[in-house]
């Protein structure tokens, strides 16, 4: 099935781009730099309550 092989190649290239390039180099969750949930909560509270 030629089309089957083509589709598998598309899926694999896409997964590599999404998970190995975009996820690792461009999409680090901002809050992942904090170690604990308390620190994350404090950071968000600070963002949500600081005056403009």
């Amino acid at each position: 099935m030629e089309v089957g092989k083509t589709l598998w190649i598309i899926i694999l290239i896409k997964l590599v781009v999404i998970f190995l390039i975009l996820r690792i180099f461009f999409f680090k969750p901002e809050l992942s730099s904090y170690d604990s949930d308390e620190q994350k909560a404090s950071h968000v509270i600070e963002n949500l309550t600081k005056l403009p």
Binding site: F27, P29, E30, L31
Partner: peptide, 15 residues
């Protein structure tokens, strides 16, 4: 990719 964006670009929202 939308879920990546939530974590990176919309972190206040995600939390």
């Amino acid at each position: 990719i939308l879920e990546f964006e939530f974590g990176t670009n919309w972190s206040n929202y995600s939390w």
